[in-house]
């Protein structure tokens, strides 16, 4: 088994090659109570920064998605303090001023692009801040759809912007006010409420196990 040497919170460990940072930490004896959630790259709990020997860059990534490399210096950032002022979506207007009045620090962006470099999801984070600055809410929502709220951009931003809270507000405004209404969903909800499917459901519930399995096997499958 090939081993690599990594430094976790400043202490060196030999760990098997090919492990993720998260598994390497567990291999080294850490029990992760914080900084670990889905283990699948979705929850954003495992934000981690690291450096490689001989390279000035500070890298940022998700521990559950990133394989260890020899000579890695690793520190986890399980939580990013970030300010989110309270608001009621129903009281807000889907306009640029809404973002700026709740998050005035947006205007402090100096376009350094540090946030983009930090994003494990490879989002164009600076472009999203710029879109927020000019009030383009649909563009913010689009650019940040895959944000996992890991907070790494926020931790690195010299303008101290709480990015993921801005994104969340933009997506909420976009969903609530700017995207077309899903009329088919409303119609179906009304049908459910009116009991259109009740007879079918009752029939299904009254089947025995074998009949249910047979019905399942014979179901229509979308191709």
């Amino acid at each position: 088994m090939n081993e690599v040497t990594v430094f976790i919170m400043g202490k060196g460990y030999h760990v098997p090659e090919g492990l993720t940072i998260m598994k390497a930490m567990e291999y080294a004896g850490y029990r992760l109570g914080r900084g670990c959630g889905c283990r699948g790259g979705y929850c954003g709990a495992c934000a981690t920064v690291y450096r490689l020997r001989g390279d000035y860059r500070l890298y940022a990534d998700l521990a559950c998605q990133t394989p260890v490399q020899d000579g890695m210096y690793i520190a986890q950032i399980p939580f990013t303090p970030a300010e989110r002022p309270p608001y009621q979506l129903a009281d807000l207007q889907p306009r640029g001023e809404t973002l700026l009045s709740l998050f005035p620090e947006l205007a402090r962006c100096v376009a350094c692009n540090t946030c983009t470099k930090a994003c494990p999801q490879k989002l164009e984070v600076m472009d999203a801040v710029q879109a927020a600055l000019r009030g383009d809410i649909p563009q913010v929502a689009e650019l940040t759809f895959d944000c996992v709220s890991c907070g790494l951009c926020t931790m690195r931003c010299p303008a101290e912007i709480s990015h993921h809270h801005v994104w969340q507000l933009a997506r909420r405004l976009n969903g609530a006010y700017l995207t077309p209404r899903a009329l088919h969903v409303q119609k179906r909800v009304q049908e459910v409420a009116a009991g259109v499917f009740k007879a079918d459901l009752d029939a299904l519930l009254s089947l025995g196990k074998d009949a249910l399995v047979a019905a399942y096997k014979a179901r229509e499958i979308e191709s």
């Binding site: 205007a107 962006c109 376009a111 710029q130």
Partner: peptide
């Protein structure tokens, strides 16, 4: 393309 605010 992809311009950013001039900083005002």
């Amino acid at each position: 393309p992809r311009w950013n605010c001039c900083g005002t």
